[in-house]
Design a protein around this nucleic acid. Structure first.
Length: 891
RNA sequence: GGGCGCGUAGCUCAGCUGGCAAGAGCGCUGCCCUUACAAGGCAGAGGCCCCUGGUUCGAGUCCAGGCGCGCCCACCA
């Protein structure tokens, strides 16, 4: 970086704590996170799913933001004007609940404080804790443009909310209605359908007798909620129900309440269920509400907002909680002989998604958004391919939901949030829907205006996120330049809440979808498979992981571990087990550089002409090319786990295990400056490009090490160019040669290991029937090969005596190791027999395949040819193994 | 009631458009503190790819059915 740490000595261990925060601060100071709205390049925009403003970072955030940062860093390196827009959400109901819980602990309620003081108290809490999470995101390396940080209650987004409300109202898409909605008695507010979580519950079905007026008989209704009978205003049967249709028009006496209610007929009733008679409670059941409208039934609201019984019920029940009332009702019915029976009954019960209280359907005045007109374009856009989902099947979920979408209840009886921009005139009853606060009534001039007490659903501001963060409704430069964006990274559970609504809002207000790709990642789980959550106490604190293992280890582990659309399991009881792979990989990278650095002192020439390169150089460049191709392709297809795995494999098993070892002879040989120079140039180049490939996933260590490389092309790896494959680096010849060398050394090492040849002891190796690639490799990399195999004398095509350990390679080349005194003939026979068995097996399979006329005729020619070659090779291997085995017998 | 996902080594999982002599990490076994790395190196053991049928020259991969797990939606009185 600017200061340029040029130490050639690195600490022997990777210690991320030593540089991560310093590196991050430097990036920010240099302004690398911002996109230039005036630059020519194509943009790449991600809007961050805004975490709740008072949230603390958990692994879900860690995963979500790591993915986004990988994509942003990669696209930025590709030269796109990459903008990642961060921010926080006021999270109406969630935040209000937190503060209410604080009040509860103090023995107070929000009503004790009053609206103004309560909201001020929430603001205090937000000021105290808000934004913490953004700092925590920085600790994991997030390169969001913090200058664009937005809070959903900021003046801009607040203006946007009003603008949207008024526009939709003017279009008739926002309306006020007296409907039955989901009501949370604890939060004392309405909820949208999506905010209700259904849980299967083993409940009871109560069969209750309602005496028929004027007759000595009764009808039996079945219900899971006996207490609601106090609000019944009818009993219904199906119009075609032969058993019961004669009852239509009669009247029953509602027990306990002692009210007379009619028997009516309605198509809704399923004659198969229960007795065929249904109690109708228009105030407390969505279906009954509809029936009530059709038949003009009374609505008897038997609950207070907190679900205690209201004055509409007989005095003895008043004030009781709904569940206590249920018991009371059941007891009384039983004692009066009006409870026929009780059956077990499985059904699902709705719970508030924020406090888990059982939701109560309740009739009230609420504001709604008419969804159909907004949903149609959103469906179209999806069907035309303007929005794609990864994994694809989520598109079906999106489509399904939008196709059957119901109107969206957007008013909340909360105090924390965007106030509904509607005023009611106290003198002429006019309703004013305004962008700006009115002071007088436009109808009558009165100043007696009361603003609607409710606030808007949090998602009513979130759905504008892709453009309200860019200044909308102002026609800002940002908006023109950075809308529409490109990728949304989030979890599948908010497809309904957020993803689909953003698409609707984008189309409605901007005329374009807000992003093209929706990447949906899985859930982080603990080692027992449970979702990690605060309430379960099984979470892992990402910051603790950063402290112990570093942000890069965290990021690598998350990226590498999260298969596309799959969940990620981590062990919250053993952080070492979960994160050491990432940490170890960091250490490997660190040590590769630690090895390389002393060899890169002084001037390092650029890559020489191809004809000056050694075989190993050509090989690593070809392998690097392949890594560039694969990693880029994986990122393009959101296959981050495969990108990570490929990088791990390439860097560790090719670059470190082989290339660094192969060039050691040249690097250590000071007497051949030219050969050493070539190795240094290639080493520098390969590390440079490898660090760049690694950078999106492991930004800190790559920056730290890249800064120490000579001949850097940029001030920071963050803004260096993403590697491109180089056509001249393709080199099948080098790949074949080194490939055969690897197999040869593998065979030698295997023999050493099988015969427990001491590590320091050199052995002679004789190779017979080597093909050109292997000869070439042994010629070019002989010194290294000797070192890696602990080989003393290397000879070719000599006489066999029988007392050698032998391996036959796939090319047919034979590796013989004379082991005077060490060789155990029995053991060697067994080795060869095992090898021969395996080969015979393969030969058999291969022959069988080729013997099939269908295969030869129908399979592609290349496949058949490959199969023939393979068989030939196998046979040759087998022959040689057999030969050697016979020679051993003769010995 | 409808829909979706998953079932591959002891564990956690890759395996994308069918060509696999089925992979990785951890764990396990043996040898090695070889001057980049013991957070390491080298060598190895370990698999009815859930079951049954089908399509195909060829199935871990595609199709159908079954079993087992998980999730989502639904006006389940």
């Amino acid at each position: 970086m600017g200061t340029g740490n040029k130490d050639t000595e690195l600490a022997p261990r990777f210690q991320p704590q030593a540089f991560e925060s310093k590196t991050y601060a430097h990036w920010w100071d240099q302004g690398y996170f911002g996109a230039d709205r005036h630059a020519e390049a194509d943009t790449y925009v991600i809007v961050m799913p805004p975490p709740n403003v008072t949230a603390e970072l958990h692994m879900g955030h860690g995963l979500n933001n790591t993915i986004q940062d990988v994509l942003i860093r990669w696209r930025r390196m590709q030269g796109r004007q990459a903008l990642w827009v961060p921010g926080t959400d006021h999270a109406g109901i969630a935040t209000q609940n937190v503060v209410e819980r604080q009040l509860t602990a103090e023995g107070k309620t929000r009503w004790d404080l009053g609206r103004e003081a309560f909201v001020e108290r929430v603001w205090d809490w937000v000021r105290e804790t808000g934004g913490t999470i953004l700092d925590q995101l920085k600790a994991i390396g997030s390169s969001a443009d913090w200058d664009h940080t937005t809070f959903t209650l900021d003046p801009g987004p607040s203006r946007a909310v009003r603008e949207v409300f008024v526009r939709l109202y003017d279009k008739g898409l926002v309306y006020r209605g007296h409907y039955i909605v989901n009501w949370c008695p604890r939060c004392a507010t309405a909820l949208a359908n999506e905010e209700v979580e259904h849980e299967d519950t083993e409940g009871s079905l109560y069969y209750q007798r309602y005496p028929v007026v004027g007759e000595d008989t009764y009808v039996v209704v079945a219900t899971t909620r006996p207490e609601t009978m106090l609000g019944d205003t009818a009993v219904a049967v199906h119009p075609d129900d032969e058993r019961h249709k004669h009852m239509i028009g009669k009247t029953v006496m509602l027990p306990l309440a002692e009210r007379e209610i009619p028997i009516i007929s309605d198509d809704f009733v399923d004659p198969e269920f229960g007795t065929g008679f249904v109690k109708v409670t228009p105030s407390h059941d969505p279906n009954d509400f509809e029936i009530g409208l059709r038949h003009d039934l009374d609505q008897v609201d038997i609950f207070h907002p907190d679900a205690t019984m209201s004055d509409a019920v007989p005095e003895r029940f008043r004030g009781k909680d709904r569940f206590a009332a249920r018991e009371g009702v059941v007891e009384e019915l039983k004692s009066k002989g009006l409870l026929e029976k009780v059956e077990k009954h499985a059904h699902s019960v709705g719970h508030c998604y924020r406090c888990d209280t059982v939701v109560e359907p309740r009739v009230s005045d609420q504001w709604f958004v008419k969804m159909k007109p907004l949903a149609e374009p959103a469906l179209d856009a999806y069907r035309k391919g303007e929005v794609r989902f990864v994994p694809e099947h989520w598109g079906g979920v999106y489509e399904n939901w939008l196709s059957g979408v119901r109107d969206w209840c957007i008013s909340r009886q909360l105090w924390w949030g965007h106030r509904i921009p509607v005023w009611y005139c106290g003198s002429c009853d006019a309703m004013l829907v305004r962008r700006e606060d009115p002071t007088t009534c436009s109808e009558c001039g009165s100043g007696e205006l009361q603003q609607d007490p409710d606030v808007l659903d949090t998602w009513f501001s979130s759905w504008l996120w892709p453009f309200n963060t860019l200044g909308w409704p102002e026609e800002t430069e940002d908006l023109k330049r950075f809308y529409p964006g490109h990728t949304l990274v989030t979890a599948p559970e908010i497809i309904f809440f957020w993803v689909s609504r953003m698409i609707m809002a984008g189309l409605e207000f901007m005329g374009e979808v807000p992003f093209n790709d929706v990447y949906l990642h899985g859930t982080v789980r603990d080692h027992t498979g449970r979702r990690m959550s605060k309430s379960l106490g099984n979470g892992i604190d990402p910051l603790e992981v950063v402290r112990i293992f570093g942000a890069d280890a965290l990021r690598f582990t998350l990226t590498n571990g999260m298969g596309i659309g799959a969940d990620l399991q981590l062990n919250n009881e053993d952080l070492e087990e979960s994160f050491h792979v990432g940490r170890n990989f960091g250490n490997k990278i660190w040590n590769a550089m630690r090895f390389a650095l002393p060899h890169l002192e002084g001037d390092v020439d650029p890559l020489p002409d191809p004809d000056q390169l050694e075989l190993a150089d050509r090989w690593i460049l070809a392998r690097l090319n392949s890594a560039i191709r694969e990693v880029t392709d994986d990122l393009e297809r959101f296959r981050l786990h495969e990108a990570a795995a490929e990088l791990y494999r390439y860097f560790w098993n090719e670059l470190c295990d082989w290339y660094l070892e192969l060039i050691k002879p040249r690097l250590y040989n000071e007497s051949d400056a030219e050969a050493r120079g070539v190795a240094r140039s290639v080493l520098r180049e390969v590390l440079d490009l490898s660090f760049r490939l690694l950078h999106p996933i492991m930004p800190f260590i790559t920056e730290e090490l890249w800064q120490r490389l000579p001949n850097r092309a940029a001030d920071s790896i963050m803004i260096s160019a993403w590697p491109q494959p180089v056509a001249e680096w393709e080199d099948a010849e080098a790949e074949a040669a080194i490939g055969q060398l690897q197999e040869t050394l593998g065979a030698v090492r295997n023999i050493r290991s099988e015969y427990n040849v001491a590590h320091g002891r050199q052995i002679d190796v004789m190779i017979r029937a080597a093909e050109a690639p292997l000869l070439r490799a042994l010629d070019a990399e002989g010194d290294a090969a000797r070192r890696l195999g602990g080989i003393g004398g290397l000879s070719f095509d000599g006489e066999l005596h029988g007392a050698e350990a032998t391996a036959v390679l796939t090319s047919g080349a034979e590796v013989h190791v004379p082991l005077e005194g060490l060789i155990d003939l029995e053991r060697e026979r067994a080795r060869l027999d095992k090898q021969a068995d395996e080969l015979r097996n393969l030969v058999e399979r291969s022959e069988k395949r080729l013997a099939s006329e269908d295969f030869v005729k129908k399979a592609p020619e290349a496949v058949v040819a490959q199969s023939r070659d393979k068989l030939e090779g196998l046979k040759e291997q087998l022959t040689k193994v057999d030969e050697k085995r016979r020679a051993l017998d003769a010995h």
